[in-house]
């Protein structure tokens, strides 16, 4: 349970971090909160030769409101999110999700950016970002680009990040009026990854669904949107039949990996169940 030797780098700025990534190529890994990477290094599943710690890059922390967006530095921790009055008011879904991640100590270290850029389908923020329609600022040697969450998650541990790019900021739209939200997560215990989880953002117009986003955690190679289920709800009356149909459509596209949490059938069923619960709660909060 001891990591292999590596060189440690603590850049003070994003540009310095990018230079290091360029210099060391795929022998380098970025270190954010470290609560995925360091345990992997201790069991020697991950053996980077260079570790580029973003912990001293001050510009990567902080939460601000700009226009109709929250702009959140990638190194903002889960507890920062939970305790931010701004996030509580403008995007409580992020708070709900962060509270379901890890345990208290993990949340002091674990970062929003680290959770997203790790590309693990079991991480929670990817689905939240998809459901919120967030976008990510990626900075590399060729400058800055903004990538929509929808275009970011490519495959397990594979994202749109280029090897020399750093995720610097997460842009989250402030929730619209009459919009409810929910992250329903089933897990075995505190600190566990999701057996299944669904993020829902739902805007109502009277009894009718005006807009909806459903995104799923740990139900496939990446977090993903359940678009057919969303389509089935959009413009429809929100009732039991609509929920049931949405859950059915969600389950039809689940492709979870079997593990000790359950087999494919159970995880698929639970993804449907979490979708139902998230939809109902979101609807209650939308009104």
């Amino acid at each position: 349970m001891i990591p292999r030797s590596f060189e440690y780098h603590a850049p003070q700025s994003v540009s310095e971090a990018i230079e290091l990534l360029q210099k060391y190529g795929d022998t380098a890994r970025l270190l954010a909160g470290g609560h995925s990477l360091i345990p992997m290094m201790k069991i020697r599943f991950a053996e980077p030769e260079h570790l580029v710690d973003l912990g001293k890059v001050a510009e990567l922390r902080g939460i601000r409101e700009q226009g109709k967006e929250l702009r959140i530095g990638a190194m903002t921790t889960e507890n920062d999110l939970i305790w931010s009055t701004l996030v509580q008011q403008k995007c409580p879904l992020l708070v709900e999700a962060a509270r379901l991640i890890g345990d208290p100590q993990v949340r002091y270290k674990g970062t929003l950016g680290g959770d997203i850029s790790h590309g693990d389908p079991g991480n929670d923020h990817p689905a939240i970002m998809l459901a919120l329609g967030a976008s990510f600022v990626l900075v590399g040697s060729n400058g800055e680009r903004v990538v929509a969450a929808d275009d970011f998650f490519v495959d397990t541990y594979v994202t749109a990040l280029e090897p020399d790019e750093v995720l610097t900021e997460i842009r989250v739209p402030v929730l619209a009026k009459n919009t409810g939200w929910c992250y329903a997560k089933l897990k075995r215990k505190i600190g566990d990854f999701a057996t299944a989880a669904a993020a829902v953002v739902l805007t109502m117009k009277g009894d009718t669904v005006k807009e909806v986003a459903i995104a799923l955690t740990n139900a496939g190679a990446t977090a993903f949107r359940a678009r057919e289920a969303e389509d089935s709800l959009r413009g429809k009356k929100f009732d039991d039949a609509a929920i049931a149909e949405a859950a059915r459509l969600v389950m039809s596209i689940c492709d979870p990996a079997e593990d000790l949490r359950g087999d494919v059938e159970y995880k698929t069923a639970m993804t449907g169940e979490m979708t139902r619960r998230a939809l109902r709660t979101a609807r209650d909060r939308a009104i």
């Binding site: 349970m1 440690y8 603590a10 470290g34 609560h35 360091i38 345990p39 201790k42 069991i43 570790l51 710690d53 912990g55 921790t77 507890n79 345990d103 208290p104 100590q105 993990v106 002091y108 270290k109 600190g191």
Partner: peptide
């Protein structure tokens, strides 16, 4: 040693952390 048990918890700059998952070099 896998960041679950918390027996190694210390307070680092006002945060409770599991010191088995923090590198000493990060503590400058």
């Amino acid at each position: 040693e896998t960041t679950h048990c918390g027996a190694c918890t210390v307070d680092l700059d006002g945060a409770s952390v599991k010191s088995c998952t923090v590198l000493t070099v990060q503590c400058q």
